Amino acid sequence: MLGAPVAHAVTQVGGFSPGVAARVVTDAGRRGFVKAVSADVNPVSPGMHREEARNAASLPVDVPAPRLLGSYDDGTWVALVFEDVEGRQPRIPWREDELTRVLDAVGELSRTLTPAPVEVPPLVESLAEDFAGWQRMIDEGDDGEGLDPWTVSHMARLAEVAAPWAGFAAGDTLAHCDLRADNVLLTDDGQVVFVDWPHARQEAAPWFDLLLMLPCVRAQGGPDPEELFTRHPLGRDADPDGVTATLAAFAGFMIRCSRQLPPPGIPTLRPFQRAQGEAALEWLRKRLAE
C-alpha cells in the first residue's frame, strides 16, 4: 500500500486496541501509520477495524482526521494504513493551553459534522442497550458491591434520571463517540487531528461528543467538567435536563462496563472505564445537587 517495503517501524503507545499500532517508514522514504489486529487476540477488534475503514474512507476532506490509504482483510487479520500525521497526543495530566486548544477544535468539529456527512448507524439506536446501564444492573441483581454508598443507595434514582436521555441526545450531527486524549493529535502548526473513528454515529446532538469527553478529561487530571461544559459554546446551547439525563446514562454505561470481566487482550480497559464512570458520577451529583 505504501509502494515499498517497510524499513523502520515505531510502536505507538496509548489506546486499548490489542493489535499493532505503528508509525512506519518505507525504504523509499514514504511514511504511514499502520494498525492491525487478529481475531485470535480479540474476536471483536477486527470488526471495529472494518468499521473504522468504512468510516474513515467516507469522511470528507475538511474533517481533521488522517486519510485512509488502504486496508487489508483476510478474515482473521485486518490492517489499516493511514497517512502519518506528524503530531503528538496531549500531555497527561492535561495542560490548560492544550485543553483549550482541543475543546475549541471539538466545537469546530461539531460544526463541520452538522449535518452528518457520513452514513453510519444512528446514535440512539446504537447506544440504547449500553446507555440503560443502571436499569440493567438493577435487573441483573447487581448490588453495587465496591461502589460508593451514594451510588448504591441511588441506583434506582439514577436509572430514572437516565431513562429519557435518547429524546435529548438525538440530533443531526455526526458524533465521534470516543473523544479522549489518546484519540487526539496536536501538530506543530496548531492543528488538532482526531483519530480512531470506528464508533462514529449519526443523528446525535451537537454537544454529545463534548459531554462524553469531559469525564475522561477529569479522570486524567483535568478541571471541573461542569465549568468546561457550561462555558463551551456547545454546552451553553444544550438543554440542561437533557445534559443531566445523558450524563446519567453515560455514567451507568461506564460503571456497568467496568464491572464486567476484561475483554481478551485488553486488561487495562475496565479500570479506565471505572475512572470515567466515577468522574461522570461526580459531575452528575453536582448537577443533581445531591
Results as ranks from 00 to 15, higher is better:
Leu174Glu: 12
Leu185Gln: 09
Phe208Thr: 07
Phe250Cys: 00
Asp189Gln: 10
Pro233His: 13
Asp239Tyr: 15
Ala248Ile: 05
Cys177Ser: 13
Trp197Cys: 09
Ala205Lys: 04
Pro215Val: 03
Pro240Tyr: 13
Ala200Lys: 10
Thr230Pro: 10
Gln220Arg: 00
Phe229His: 01
Glu160Val: 04
Asp178Ser: 00
Asp189Gly: 15
Gly221Gln: 04
Ala204Pro: 03
Leu211Pro: 10
Arg218Leu: 04
Ala249Asn: 06
Pro233Asn: 06
Ala248Gly: 11
Cys216Tyr: 01
Gly167Trp: 01
Asp196Glu: 01
His232Asp: 03
Phe194Ser: 05
Val152Trp: 08
Met155Val: 10
Asp237Thr: 11
Glu227Ile: 08
Asp224Asn: 13
Leu234Glu: 04
Thr244Val: 12
Ala205Gly: 03
Ala170Asn: 09
Leu185Lys: 02
Gly235Ser: 00
Val192Glu: 02
Pro225Asp: 15
Val152Ile: 13
Ala170Phe: 13
Ala238Ile: 04
Asp239Val: 07
Pro198Arg: 08
Leu179Arg: 06
Asp182Met: 02
Phe194Asn: 00
Thr173Glu: 00
Gly190Phe: 04
Pro240Lys: 14
Pro233Val: 08
Val152Thr: 14
His232Thr: 09
Asp209His: 00
Asp188Asn: 14
Thr246Ala: 00
Trp207Thr: 07
Thr187Pro: 01
Gly242Leu: 12
Thr244Gly: 05
Cys177Glu: 14
Met213Ala: 14
Leu247Asp: 03
Val193Ser: 09
Glu226Gln: 15
Met155Asn: 01
Gly221Thr: 02
His232Tyr: 08
Val161Asn: 09
